[in-house]
Design a protein around this nucleic acid. Structure first.
Lengths: 326, 326
DNA sequence: CTGTTAGCGCATTCAC
DNA sequence: GTGAATGCGCTAACAG
């Protein structure tokens, strides 16, 4: 039982009766090469017949770049929506010939350099900022595109910033449209979520008639009740919650103070399954992850191939799902 | 502004005044080579001074295998718990020198061969089964370990089977211990979840005094209400739900028929944030993902290096979180 | 013992 | 259309 030797481009060349260079040109459809259709077909047939697949490692070694797009996941638990986005992104990038992989785990575990050095990706995406040194190092190592989807203002990238703002804006618009003049914002307890919370809050601010009253709400009914009590004292009647879980906490808190929905409207984000099962069922906003993912994919592909990126179509990107809570 | 050339082992060799072979031997601590401490230190110092990092691509090309462990994610939305498991797995494998990456996206998008061929992983993990051809192809291509975490009986792997069974067992034990003689099982609506649901249900069966009454429950209060009505007619008083979301649906359904918890006990799985915020708050079971991930990591490392894998410590792996619903 | 030479793994691409 | 160099690290064989 001998090791079944790998099929290389040399095998294809031999079988097609041409040189390895020709094989490479044909299979990569290299522009500026004149190869007769007959030869082309012979090579293609030989490759197909042998089941040839180029060695990714050799190609990466030679070109200095793989066809992999690496996404560094944040160290906080990713929810269903992010998972959904990654799936759509993977599909969209696959159509463009890229392989999408995600690396979970905090940056504390391991310097991120260790990770991209073992992958040699064409592009690296991250939810949070890179340091200047990191960005520089990746660029130097041949990574074509480095994008922080969210992060400090004034930086390149931040492709998720606008959609996140849109989320807050829609929440505020919905409550304002329902007659709530004084809004509150239920900020998440976990500091790691700040990077998502800030743009969402900014969106709420941009659409609220008056400055919303921000309070941190832990995922705990008793603590949430305290926040609700103070909001009521402030004259707040509508709450935009960071996400559905925080919204459920607000509702749980309100319930401790009396019947719900009562006089307090609450709107969440994500439309998790529990949202429609809650009492009252939760009004929330959802993002069209497929469109967003497609845009992200196009942006990556454009950048890697040196073209300019398109503009994100924001119409209908974020939709309100109206239920009982607001 | 010239391209900052990559630092190679030749640079290190030059700086240390030795051959490239020596550099390789020192840096890899190759056994069976005798190199004087002085030379060793010079090489190490040179490598550190230059900030040398070996080219993963070249190493992969030469050895035929990378230090990457690839996990193929299922096409159904991965929840928080799976995300958590992946994070822990990543951390655990990092300690062993492996880089963990996950590939989201359904197998329909793209043959899985495309994926592992571009990564050349040391091991491939998947939640679902591989076909025999796929397994064979990967083996032939040098993937040291191929594991389906769940799947058809009688196959190798299935490292998650036991923990999943344990989940069901604990649920049943809890309800039985509370005096419920007749149990129901709330099966998920999504057929893609079957692969998790089956071992969980098997666990429930193994611990229930009588055969549990299985009913599919969609994430919808009205449909769940119908299921609850029939369970009641069957004399069922305790429901083991596939997960917390299904459990919330059961509670929502029960609420349509009268006050809850009333006479129906419900226990979920996962302890999602919404579980403690629900009314009544949801009793559920959680898995110690850190322990599980550590075991998985050890198994992978053992297999890749040809050692034998340890046994999963099942004591305390799954814990019941007691709240109001059961 | 210490360390070197030389060839390999595989695809890409320049110069002819 | 082709020959040959190139990217980088590993390792068997071998010389002091």
């Amino acid at each position: 039982m001998s090791e079944p030797r790998r099929i290389t481009s040399a095998d294809v060349a031999r079988r097609a009766g041409v040189s390895r260079a020709t094989v490479s040109y044909v299979l990569n459809a290299t522009p500026g090469q004149s190869i007769s259709p007959a030869t082309r077909d012979r090579v293609l047939a030989a490759a197909a017949g042998l089941g040839y697949a180029p060695s990714a490692a050799a190609r990466t070694l030679r070109t200095g770049r793989s066809e992999v797009v690496l996404c560094l996941l944040p160290d906080w638990p990713i929810g269903n929506e992010v998972g959904n986005l990654l799936g759509n992104l993977s599909t969209a990038l696959a159509r463009e010939g890229f392989t999408f992989v995600a690396h979970p785990g905090s940056r504390q575990d391991r310097p991120i350099a260790d990770i991209w050095k073992t992958i040699t990706p064409a592009a690296v995406l991250s939810f949070t900022d890179f340091s200047d040194d990191e960005t520089e190092a990746m660029r130097a190592a041949g990574v074509a595109l480095v994008v922080a989807l969210l992060g400090r203002a004034g930086r390149h990238g931040r492709e998720l910033e606008l959609p996140q703002q849109l989320i807050g804006r829609r929440q505020a618009e919905h409550l304002t449209g329902a007659g709530h003049a004084r809004l509150g914002y239920a900020y998440p307890d976990d500091p790691r979520l700040q990077i998502f919370a800030e743009p969402r809050l900014a969106g709420v601010r941009s659409a609220a008639p008056r400055r919303p009253v921000v309070r941190t709400v832990a995922l705990d009914a008793a603590q949430a009740a305290a926040a609700v009590r103070r909001w009521r004292a402030d004259g707040v009647t509508g709450i935009c919650a960071y996400n559905d879980e925080v919204a459920l906490a607000v509702l749980a808190g309100a319930r401790r103070l009396g019947p719900v929905p009562g006089d307090l409207a609450v709107i969440g984000v994500d439309d998790i399954p529990a949202a429609r099962l809650a009492v009252p069922s939760l009004t929330t906003v959802t993002t069209d992850q497929r469109t967003l993912a497609a845009h992200l994919a196009t942006t990556v592909v454009a950048a890697v191939s040196g073209r300019t990126a398109p503009v994100l179509p924001t119409a209908d990107l974020v939709r309100v799902v109206v239920r009982e809570s607001a």
